[in-house]
Structures are given as C-alpha cells and as structure tokens.
Simulated scan of single mutants.
Amino acid sequence: MTVHVDAREAAQMVLHAKIRVPARPGPLTLVYPKWIPGDHGPTGNVADIMGLRISAGGKSLPWRRDPERTSEFAVNVPAGSNAVDVDLDVVVETRFGATAGASDLNWHRVVLYPKGARPRDLQVEARADIPPDWRYATPLSVASEGGGTLTFKPVSLEMLVDSPVILGRYGRSIDLGTALGAPHSMELVAETEDALAVNEKQIAAYRALVGEAAALFGARHYDRYTFLYLLSSAVEDGSGFEHHRSSLDVAPASIFSKEDDFRSARWLLAHEFAHSWNGKYRRPKGTPHSTTKSRCTTSCSGFTKG
C-alpha cells in the first residue's frame, strides 16, 4: 500500500489522503479502522469522513457502504486492474488539542485497507505534506524530506498506526539520554515559542524518569523511544495515548511556565511510558482492555474486531 497525506490544511481542521491498495479484479471490501489499538472499544469514527472517492486506472468506481457494518465499503475492481486508488477527506479530531497552530496525524484516521488483511502483514509506503514552516516529530524513520514533504521508510500498517506525527508552528527536541542501549527524547510542538521554555530542573525530572524505568523493568523492547508532547491552548488538563516506541501526550501550553500546571501534569509521561511495557509489549491474558480510569488503555488485537 501507499498512503500520501496532505496535512497542509491541518490549521483548518482538514486532512486529505490518497491511498493505493493492491487488488485483483472482482469484489473488494475496504474497511475504515474501527478497533484502534490503545482504545477501550470500537472508537474509529467513520462519521468524520467528509469525502470518499474510489477509482482504478483513472476511472471512478461506484462503491456501496454496508448498512450495518458502516465502516465497510464494497467495490468491484474492473478487469485488468491491479490496484484501486482511494481519495479520502477527514476532519481533524480535537481529542489531542488540535488548534490552528498545532495538530496531530494519527494514521488510522486516514487509511482504508482490505477486509480480512492482517495489518502486520501489509507493508505501507507513507508520505505526508505538512504546513509551510511547521515543525514535526514522529517515531517513524524519515527516508527523505524536502519541500514540506516527509517520506517515511516502509513499515507495516500495524506499525504505521502505532506511530503518530505531531505538528506545530514551533518545536523543540530535548535529549533525555540513553538507557539500556536505546536513546530517548522528548519532542515538543506548540502554537507559540514561549510554550517550549522547559527549564533544566524540569528536564532533569524527565531524564530521571528514563533511568528509573530502566531500573524498574530491567529490559527494553524498542530501538528508541520518543515522547511526543503537544502543548495546546485548547486543553486544560493532560491526557495521553500509549504506543510501543512512543507516546502521544497533550498538555496545556502553560505546563512549563506555571509550576502548578507542571506539578499537576508531570505524571502523564511516566504513565504512558509504563504502558509501553504493560499494555503494548505485554498484555495480561484475559484482560484485553485496561481498567484504569485514565484515557489510555491497553491495545486491542486488531483494527476491525476486538
């Protein structure tokens, strides 16, 4: 598969995607992710799709949405075709504090894939166009960058969905040191440069977190770890989402400038970091979802079913 996301209108809360899906002639059902790894239930919001166009060889193909399984779209691939092209428009979700100056790209919101396919077996070549002069951060490996376009090294669909991108007018990268042979960093994006003013005492606390996790767990399961931190004026409290090699965290833009805000939200990165071991790398048998009251949860087993 190939996925090319145009995020240049992220400030207007719109994402555009072009997806090419290898396919054989005949009936094909494409699905929009429903069970999102890390969420409590079938939270993939197909209602956020604003436009869907499917074609093959440059010719538009009629599609039919299943009246009961509303995340499924049926189409007939014409003879002589080996792929279908999907144009997808979706609204930017606001759960991670997206504003006109900072946003996120969660890949499950901009893909359709063949029903029945295993996400870990589908290889994806992904690209993203970002707004001019905006900064970005992601755990994905970037193969090339130029003209506002990021081209990522191929990964499985499973890993792509587990590797968000954050975008903002301003950004800062902070090295948190190496533990158990793996580098760790905190990547900040924000609407204003003032929000990035992390002091040395605060940085020291996060560096200590990395060392404490290494001492607690005694092993690591990733080649590097990235704390993705989106600082937004649209949120009043911290929230996050765990991933295998990263976490997507959001906090008020004042978290580093106001000691009370820092004190109230400093637990967040530690909480999501621990879920990389407990919930992502390992999940207790018989407990597919977390019982915590926070927003973050353990992973579901797939995209289309729990």
Rank of each mutant, 00 (worst) to 15 (best):
residue 230 L to T: 03
residue 269 L to Y: 11
residue 83 A to F: 02
residue 72 E to H: 10
residue 291 T to I: 12
residue 187 E to H: 10
residue 239 S to C: 09
residue 277 W to S: 10
residue 160 L to S: 00
residue 61 L to V: 10
residue 279 G to P: 12
residue 67 P to T: 06
residue 130 I to D: 02
residue 145 E to D: 12
residue 221 H to L: 04
residue 186 M to A: 15
residue 201 K to L: 11
residue 83 A to C: 03
residue 223 D to L: 04
residue 119 P to M: 00
residue 235 V to P: 02
residue 273 F to A: 07
residue 19 I to P: 01
residue 175 D to L: 09
residue 68 E to F: 12
residue 26 G to A: 05
residue 294 S to D: 14
residue 183 P to Q: 11
residue 93 E to H: 01
residue 144 S to K: 15
residue 294 S to W: 14
residue 78 P to R: 03
residue 50 M to S: 15
residue 234 A to W: 02
residue 193 E to M: 08
residue 23 A to M: 05
residue 29 T to E: 06
residue 148 G to N: 06
residue 221 H to V: 07
residue 189 V to E: 05
residue 86 V to F: 02
residue 166 I to Y: 02
residue 265 A to T: 15
residue 129 D to H: 06
residue 164 P to T: 01
residue 141 S to C: 02
residue 215 A to S: 12
residue 38 G to V: 12
residue 178 T to R: 15
residue 151 T to E: 09
residue 39 D to N: 11
residue 45 N to W: 10
residue 219 A to M: 10
residue 40 H to Y: 14
residue 65 R to F: 04
residue 144 S to I: 10
residue 300 C to A: 14
residue 174 I to D: 06
residue 71 S to T: 12
residue 229 Y to V: 05
residue 205 A to S: 11
residue 42 P to N: 13
residue 233 S to P: 08
residue 197 A to I: 07
residue 258 K to P: 04
residue 167 L to K: 04
residue 126 A to E: 02
residue 81 S to E: 01
residue 158 E to H: 04
residue 215 A to Q: 14
residue 61 L to G: 05
residue 293 K to S: 14
residue 149 T to A: 10
residue 306 G to A: 13
residue 250 V to N: 00
residue 39 D to M: 15
residue 101 G to F: 00
residue 99 T to A: 00
residue 121 D to E: 13
residue 228 L to S: 01
residue 301 S to V: 12
residue 150 L to P: 04
residue 21 V to S: 01
residue 269 L to H: 08
residue 235 V to C: 03
residue 223 D to W: 04
residue 160 L to R: 02
residue 256 F to W: 14
residue 31 V to S: 11
residue 204 A to F: 07
residue 261 D to E: 13
residue 33 P to F: 03
residue 141 S to D: 08
residue 224 R to W: 05
residue 40 H to E: 14
residue 89 D to F: 00
residue 63 W to M: 08
residue 157 L to I: 05
residue 186 M to Y: 07
residue 255 I to S: 04
residue 248 L to M: 09
residue 167 L to I: 10
residue 238 G to L: 05
residue 270 A to Q: 15
residue 2 T to A: 08
residue 170 Y to V: 09
residue 277 W to I: 08
residue 305 K to H: 12
residue 108 H to N: 02
residue 293 K to P: 08
residue 112 L to W: 01
residue 301 S to C: 11
residue 289 H to N: 14
residue 258 K to C: 11
residue 297 T to P: 03
residue 302 G to N: 13
residue 9 E to S: 15
residue 298 T to H: 11
residue 225 Y to K: 03
residue 284 P to F: 14
residue 288 P to G: 10
residue 118 R to W: 01
residue 98 A to V: 00
residue 147 G to T: 09
residue 82 N to Y: 03
residue 217 F to Y: 15
residue 221 H to E: 08
residue 226 T to S: 08
